[in-house]
Simulated scan of single mutants.
Amino acid sequence: MTQTRLHLTTSKAEAERIFAAMETAFEEDGWPISVLELDEDRDLHEISLYAEGDVEAIEGQLRDLLTALSVDKPLEREVLPDIDWVARSLEGLKPVRAGRFFVHGAHDRDQIRPGDIAIEIEAGLAFGTGHHGTTAGCLEVLESVVEAEHPQNALDLGTGSAVLAIALAKLAAIPVLATDIDPVATEVATANVKLNDASNLVETTTATGFDHPVFAERGPFALIVANILAGPLMDIAPDMAAHLQPGGSLVLSGILDRQHDAVLAAYTAQGFRHIRTLHLEGWVTIHLKR
């Protein structure tokens, strides 16, 4: 189906603010969103939304959002028939360093340094490439948790591209269960696990809830990481408590700065204690323990 790209050019700071608002506004629709650096010296960044179907309505919704954000930049439209939007959105992204981790595409293998924990992620139909502030925040927090606690098993809930599961397998050399509710995401995760030679440690499974038997078989877990959305994270707080070992660590992200207190309250009500919050690009990553 023909896609339409709705896009505007602005500064990096404003692009990140718009991106965060667009993710919230369009999360149920699932329209792909990307930010591309056009000119570093002039601080020009292009933010795009790729839509299908009733583009007029989508454009109207986006214009209303920009007005609410007091963004006075022209919104342009471009028809893109049969485009691979994921590949396009990743083309302009630079590799990301988070602690010892280096998340990159195949074209950036030559930038791997001695001592890097390299994770290669290619275009696929799942989010979580490591370029997003939530994933980068998780990587940084996970490195500190593994170094301090030496967990013996882990769960990556809502794994997406499996970047976090791969990171744990490479860093800690422990078994990791990587689950997602979307079977397409699970397929992409499986491919990425294989690409990174982590199949011996990472098991990928499509699971729509904690009632799936794999959680009972593999748990309880010494470490759980979940980079999803604030609402679902609050809903599953009791299940998280039930599947985390006493003394274990929980790392949560996919949470906007303004959602931090509500998520934290849901987990402290389940007996978790707050260890640390990392703020990155308008998002937070929360480390909790039982």
Rank of each mutant, 00 (worst) to 15 (best):
Thr4Trp: 06
Arg5Leu: 10
Leu8Asp: 03
Arg17Trp: 00
Phe19Ile: 09
Ala20Leu: 13
Glu23Gln: 14
Glu23Asp: 08
Glu23Ser: 05
Thr24Trp: 01
Phe26Gln: 07
Phe26Trp: 13
Asp29Met: 14
Ile33Ala: 07
Ser34Ile: 11
Asp43Gly: 07
Leu44Asp: 05
Ser48Glu: 00
Leu49Cys: 14
Gly53Val: 12
Leu62Ala: 15
Arg63Asn: 02
Asp64Leu: 13
Thr67Asn: 10
Ala68Val: 02
Asp72Gln: 11
Leu75Val: 06
Arg77Tyr: 00
Leu80Arg: 15
Val86Ala: 07
Gly92Trp: 00
Val96Met: 07
Val96Leu: 05
His107Met: 05
Arg109Cys: 02
Pro114Gln: 03
Ile117Leu: 15
Ala123Lys: 02
Ala126Val: 09
His131Phe: 10
His132Phe: 11
Ala136Asn: 02
Leu139Lys: 06
Ser144His: 14
Val146Arg: 03
Glu147Phe: 15
Asn153Val: 11
Leu157Gln: 00
Gly160Lys: 02
Lys170Phe: 09
Lys170Gln: 09
Lys170Tyr: 08
Ala173Phe: 02
Pro183Trp: 00
Thr186Met: 01
Val188Thr: 10
Val193Ile: 10
Leu195Ile: 04
Asp197His: 15
Asn200Cys: 11
Thr206Glu: 12
Thr208Leu: 13
Phe215Glu: 08
Ala216Gly: 14
Glu217Met: 08
Gly219Asp: 13
Ile224Asp: 04
Val225Trp: 02
Val225Glu: 04
Leu229Thr: 09
Ser249Phe: 06
Ser249Trp: 08
Val251Ile: 07
Gly254Ser: 08
Leu264Val: 13
Ala269Gly: 05
Gln270Thr: 03
Arg273Lys: 14
His274Cys: 11
Ile275Glu: 09
Arg276Val: 09
Arg276Tyr: 10
Leu278Lys: 14
Val284Ala: 03
Thr285Gly: 15
Arg290Trp: 12
